[in-house]
Design a protein around this nucleic acid. Structure first.
Length: 422
DNA sequence: TCTGGGGTCCTAGGACCC
DNA sequence: TCTGGGGTCCTAGGACCC
């Protein structure tokens, strides 16, 4: 059996930990650049807000209902997420962190002394006690069913946070009640197809023949089908190195000058390189993309991308940044007001301890590696961008990202730690 | 005025090989 | 007149996830 532990409106819940007066109040967290709503509490939903709403379009609802608005603070959420996972791992041997707010647990052997439901209730209470983050838990023979269980646990208070789908009768009942569009693996497109064929509930789908599913939805559909029928087949790997790494941003204001764009792209490249070293990998291909504001049809539109392949895969900030600069120069068009840009690293492989290449143009590779290590060290201890390349610029004003309502980094920055006055 | 960011996997089809 | 069969590799784009 698997358990899915899902943090309830996670970003909002984290904000509420540090703003205790917000219990029971509508709260939303915005996307980067204060664009759209990405997380909201049930109270905010009840006020008529939805995930994905551009905040400027729902200003009146926000003001009328006194909704509390926060800019996104991923550093804070990631730190809190780690605390939740730590508690899980203390209680359960096999925990797969699936996303920032969800973990799968393998419950093999945990039903010796308690029922699995009681056991997971205990874990959920511990998480609540130590982090103040409320979680919903689903227990089932497959991960897809466990996710469905966690949604029921969230929806109905009677489950007291944990819903187990552990008999065939419960499985069929759950599948007949659950919205088809909310099933893990069924997106907008698949939903349309299924409705067209007269399938309206997950149970209808699960009761189809495998051959039908295979011919209409191919492999991913068959996986979902098997999982809904209680056969686990979705393998999420615990330690997975990313095969692509991307840093991109929308700008608070559109920018037109190459200098600002250079400084933005250099910063994105450095951030990619940092993530790359963090997972112990090297990359061979650097792609840069730029785009104008697609919502402004009164302005000339332009979007383009360019890649540079390095002869030797690397995680060196200087190499990756200069490749990115080169790519940027090849697609920069004057006269365009740019709204968004980014850097993508691909052809990523694990870094080998020692590598030498006959035609390597960089002769002091070991020293450069040491330099990167020192740079990461300093930035880790004294804050990101304490040490950075000059080309990233010191004046971020030109391409700043809007973040008007950001909470302090309570958990990761000693200067922003919570102060309590008694 | 203001509209997010970061991923994975699969399939079809083209280009190529013998 | 009739013009095969069996592969691999790569890429773009679709679909999905959080």
């Amino acid at each position: 059996m698997y358990a899915l532990v899902d943090c309830n409106s996670f970003f909002c819940s984290v904000e509420k930990v540090f703003h205790p007066g917000l219990g029971g109040k509508p709260v939303v967290v915005l996307s980067s650049n204060d664009g759209c709503i990405v997380a909201l509490t049930p109270e905010a939903k009840a006020a008529g807000l939805h995930r994905g709403d551009p905040i400027f379009k729902v200003r009146d609802i926000v003001e009328r209902n006194n909704v509390h608005v926060f800019s996104t603070n991923m550093r804070l959420y990631a730190a809190m997420s780690d605390r939740v996972t730590d508690i899980l791992r203390k209680s359960i041997t096999h925990v797969e962190k699936y996303s920032i707010d969800e973990s799968f647990c393998d419950l093999e052997g945990y039903d010796r002394y308690h029922t699995l439901t009681d056991f997971m209730r205990g874990v959920a209470e511990e998480i609540r006690l130590y982090t103040d983050i409320p979680v919903s838990v689903g227990i089932a023979p497959s991960k897809t069913l466990a996710k469905i269980g966690s949604k029921f646990a969230k929806q109905y208070e009677g489950y007291r946070g944990v819903c187990a789908i552990d008999t065939d009768a419960k499985r069929r009942k759950a599948l007949s009640l659950f919205p088809l569009s909310d099933v893990w693996g069924i997106g907008r497109h698949t939903l349309e197809k299924l409705l067209y064929h007269g399938i309206t509930t997950p149970l209808d789908f699960a009761d189809r023949k495998e051959s039908w599913v295979r011919s209409h939805l191919f492999l991913p559909g068959v996986q979902t089908w098997l999982e809904l029928n209680g056969t686990p087949c979705i393998d999420t790997h615990e330690i997975r190195r990313n095969t692509n790494i991307c840093t991109s941003r929308s700008f608070g204001n559109m920018i037109a000058d190459i200098a600002s764009l250079c400084s933005a792209i250099a910063s994105f490249a450095a951030s990619c390189a940092n993530k790359l070293r963090g997972q112990g990998s090297v990359a061979r291909t650097v792609t840069v993309f730029v785009m104008s504001n697609r919502f402004r049809d009164d302005l000339p539109q332009y979007a383009n991308s360019a890649s540079r392949s390095l002869s030797v895969a690397t995680s060196d900030t200087m190499e990756l940044t200069s490749a990115a600069m080169e790519a940027l120069m090849s697609i920069f068009l004057p006269g365009i007001r740019y709204k968004k840009a980014g850097v993508v690293l691909s052809d990523i492989v694990p870094a080998a301890p020692f590598e030498q290449y006959l035609f390597d143009e960089i002769k002091n590779r070991p020293q450069r590696k040491d330099l990167m290590r020192v740079m990461d060290d300093i930035n880790c201890r004294h804050g990101v961008k304490t040490l950075h390349l000059a080309v990233e610029g010191v004046d971020k004003e030109a391409w700043h990202v809007r973040s008007e309502y950001r909470s302090p980094n309570y958990l990761t920055d000693i200067d922003e730690i919570l102060t309590i006055k008694i």
